[in-house]
Design a protein around this nucleic acid. Structure first.
Lengths: 146, 146
DNA sequence: ATCATTGCAAACACTTTGCATACGC
DNA sequence: GCGTATGCAAAGTGTTTGCAATGAT
């Protein structure tokens, strides 16, 4: 997809949700598409302000809140101190390495829990978070031991 | 279990983890035992300051951090803006009602995901969060419609 | 011209830090 | 008496709010 095509594609997604596709909104959405690393507000701001020098953090906050309310992005609260954002896709889990801080996705086949939960309550969003030590950090730690 | 027995029991748990069982620490642990509603720091502080008038929020923060590091409590980050605390027990999920704000536990039989995740990485903690509308709120909303 | 969007600055809320006081062995 | 635990006050950090300036149709 060319850059222009991508922008047109994003614009159509936004229009479908009754969001007027401003420069800032398109770029924030594009950033989330291109950088699926679950960025926080600061990362989004610091990278995009290079392209849009007048950009303010408030706009990033406003836009993400808008996207959230329209179900375009989901918030990941695996970190205790800050929100991270993810383009809304299929159900997947998030693994956070307690050593290097990296957060990566993994596929979930199925979440098995008491079916009454689903029957009695209305589920809007599900998040599975796993914390631990990632493959790379474990290997590094093992090497250091030698 | 009598009150004294409970305090003795908590003291032994703390001592096992090399934590000297001070009045504050015992009462914070007891609060988490007695009130399994996933309180935040403010709830713990507001209730306990009635019993311990000199209590400070700093102590609540310090103590919870200490308990966390000793694996006595787990932090629930289902809320975007604040941490909630839970006595460390068996694996269970948390459901948060987007209407009334209540958070309740539910049992998980099994978490099914790619076994490579478990093989390659070291899992320390797992959290499953579900957000939606709870039974009571759904019933209330349906009644209001009539 | 009007309405929506943006962005600055200030306010907010939760949490952490520095340091002096108080407590326990 | 000495080391740890406590608690006040201030600072820090992520986020929200109020409002004026800007932009789009």
């Amino acid at each position: 997809m060319s850059e222009e095509e991508k922008i047109e594609y994003i614009s159509s997604i936004l229009r479908e949700k009754d969001i007027s596709p401003s420069l800032q909104r398109i770029q924030i959405y594009k950033y989330l598409m291109d950088n699926q690393v679950h960025p926080n507000v600061d990362m989004i701001y610091r990278d995009l302000v290079k392209k849009i020098p007048t950009l303010s953090k408030t706009t990033v906050y406003n836009t993400l809140k808008l996207f959230q309310s329209k179900d375009l992005v989901s918030v990941i609260t695996i970190e205790e101190n800050e929100a991270r954002y993810d383009i809304h896709t299929h159900l997947h889990g998030h693994f956070k390495c307690l050593n290097c801080g990296k957060i990566f996705d993994f596929d979930i086949e199925e979440l098995k829990f008491d079916p009454m939960i689903e029957k009695e309550n209305k589920i809007i969003d599900q998040q599975l978070y796993i914390k631990g030590y990632c493959k790379e950090c474990i290997e590094k730690m093992n090497k250091e031991k030698e």
